[in-house]
Amino acid sequence: MTTTLTPGSPAARYREIEETRGEASDVNVGEGERLACGIGGAALALYGIRRDDWGGAALALLGGALLYRGVTGHSEMYEALNVSTAGKSRAGWSRDVHRGLKVQKTVTVNRSPEECYRFWRDFENLPRFMRHLESVQVLDGNRSRWTARAPLGTVSWDAAIINDVPDELIAWRSLEGADVDNAGSVRFRPAPGNRGTTVTVELNYEPPAGRLGVTIAKLFGEEPEQQVREDLRRFKQVMEAGEVATVQGQPSYHGRD
């Protein structure tokens, strides 16, 4: 069935996202697990039927359910839990060789756009909520030097602000010679209903050919989307609560002789 959607409408956007994610199929159980469910389920069902008692009937039912899951590759429980073992769903970011890597995330912060903008615009504040950054040093009004933690030491690059609309938008990109050609922007919009500010961050990485895996992994680990989400969560905590929630350094019992 095809319906025509107004281009740019929320429905069209949703369709686009769904198509990009390629999750139209109901399969949410991985291949290995399906095989195990199928064989185990069939064996259990046969055994249950042959036992010819109430316990056997229960086992047969259970076996049947497993067999169904194996054959269809669909688990109601996984669906309800939004879990899939049939390959990872990666909403919100995409990776392709030509476009590099792009992440976009949004959070609502219970502070005014002015306050959010002012805090972010002072780039030396960024390491307070971006965990992979060790420091950002402002060189002059426009340029800054970013230093990120990596498994083997640090990675450094210079960046310049390419767009700056007070209380609304900051955009930056790396300068010539960066290991990872990267650009980012953050947009601050008043949230509806006086709920503060909608903060949307977009990051793009376009590394030189061949270095994609290595350098991106260095900077972001395996889950860039998760990283950005956690960074934004910390930004919100700093803006609203004035501190980042932690349990690092609290007591517990670990020594067992």
């Binding site: 609502t108 219970n110 709920r195 503060g196 989400r229 969560r233 609203e240 609560a241 004035g242 349990v247």
Partner: peptide
């Protein structure tokens, strides 16, 4: 509860946005 987020301000303290270090 942090007392500053949307939920704390709405008196929905147990739904605080900012107090769980393992929110992810």
């Amino acid at each position: 509860s942090c007392g500053n987020c949307f939920f704390c301000e709405k008196d929905l303290w147990a739904l605080c946005d900012n107090s769980n270090p393992n929110a992810g």
